[in-house]
Design a protein around this nucleic acid. Structure first.
Lengths: 224, 224
DNA sequence: GGCCTTATTATGCGGTTGGATAATTGATAG
DNA sequence: CTATCAATTATCCAACCGCATAATAAGGCC
């Protein structure tokens, strides 16, 4: 008698885990967390649902792994940019801002993914830890770049400047993700560099577009 | 024979609809969209689940109504602040920024609610329209305040300044909602006023804390 | 080429979901 | 006081959820 059982091939553990994680992220991006059911994930990964529990002890663990992978992808991108950036503090900060406001960080799916997992971080402690680590790592990196640029170390002032610059980047990131067609190419980066530059009282655009010297007495910090 | 049926009282249509909407928002804030099941909503509203379909043609319609109510609450707050604000353009913009970065707009529940509904706006056309209307209305209001302050009408430059200032406000709003304990009272407002002021080349803090005159040649616009 | 491990499929279960429908009861009008 | 109507409750249903377990075959080993 012929078997109607689905044929299959055995795959590496890493391959399968990654396929399941990718399927999870794709489904969450498409239809929110509620769309990422075990059956839908398995189907998109080309396997049957039972396999999920063979590689992840529960669906929550798969979700946590997918979130960690997403966050790691973003932070790894920032780190890679800084690793290949020049030594000039101004250029380094500009490269950092540019990377944070360009693909693949700015992406139509990114915001939805971030929003979908935000709620999960409220319950799952592991995901909450991933969230806090990623967020503070980004802001600390930004703060150290600002410190290098301004050349001093008033911790309180640096913290405030980092918060403000981080807010600009986050806000532009949100707008760029939510309304990808509303901005010309590179417009988001240009806006980010100018806004961060205005807050810090510096010009980050590389001087190419600068029309007048920038007195350094008008940054946010000096106003305080 | 005694009836074990739950006693009840009849209520106004508006009262019931509002109770169901409030219950929905509360549940979404607590546990994300997945926690807002028809049974949970009905229970929190003190009715039985069948009543939901008596007032809303489907659960999706209830979700859309809840989202519209949430957005209306926020925009109404901004509008009310502007209505009672003084006539000085600088003071009006400062009041607008202050309101956007203070309770009840900045609230521990607000971000989770916003994130939860963001995904729904991708599918439901009605919710997408609510989303776009609210977002653009806020930015347009901000842009007109900036226009009044700067006293000119270069549309392209105004749009860019509005986008940047909106990004600051959004970013600080996110941080304030996500990490309510990370900021001292009024710190968020202070940061917002200074950052927006730096971008526009103006001082919005009312001069109380200003230590030096602010040349107007360093705003984001002039750099371009 | 047969065997053995285990990755993978297949099937079933208890619980929950959104929705439909029937039964009941509170308010109102006459 | 009673009839009427609709607001509300109660019950049911098919579909789906995550998860557990049993059956099966793919691929490495000798």
């Amino acid at each position: 008698m012929p078997s109607d059982r689905k044929p299959y091939h055995r795959a590496d553990e890493d391959t399968r885990r990654q396929a399941l994680i990718n399927a999870t992220l794709a489904l969450v991006a498409e239809g929110g967390a509620q769309a990422a059911t075990v059956r839908a994930i398995a189907h998109k990964a080309g396997v049957t649902s039972g396999l999920i529990r063979h590689y992840f002890s529960s669906k929550d663990h798969l979700m946590a792994a997918a979130y960690a992978h997403l966050m790691h992808r973003m932070t790894a991108h920032s780190a890679a940019v800084l690793r290949t950036a020049p030594h000039d503090p101004k250029a380094r900060l500009a490269a950092f801002v540019t990377a944070a406001l360009s693909p693949p960080v700015v992406d139509g799916e990114a915001l939805v993914l971030w929003a979908a997992f935000l709620q999960e971080t409220h319950r799952d402690p592991a995901m909450r830890q991933t969230h806090a680590q990623t967020y503070l790592a980004f802001r600390d990196q930004l703060q150290s770049l600002i410190a290098d640029l301004l050349g001093h170390s008033d911790a309180q002032a640096l913290r405030r400047l980092a918060i403000a610059c981080n807010a600009v980047i986050d806000g532009l990131w949100m707008e760029g993700c939510a309304l990808p067609n509303a901005f010309a190419p590179e417009e988001l980066v240009d806006l980010g560099l100018r806004a961060v530059g205005a807050i810090l009282g510096t010009d980050l655009t590389g001087g190419l577009l600068q029309t007048s010297p920038l007195p350094l007495t008008t940054n946010m910090e000096v106003q305080a």
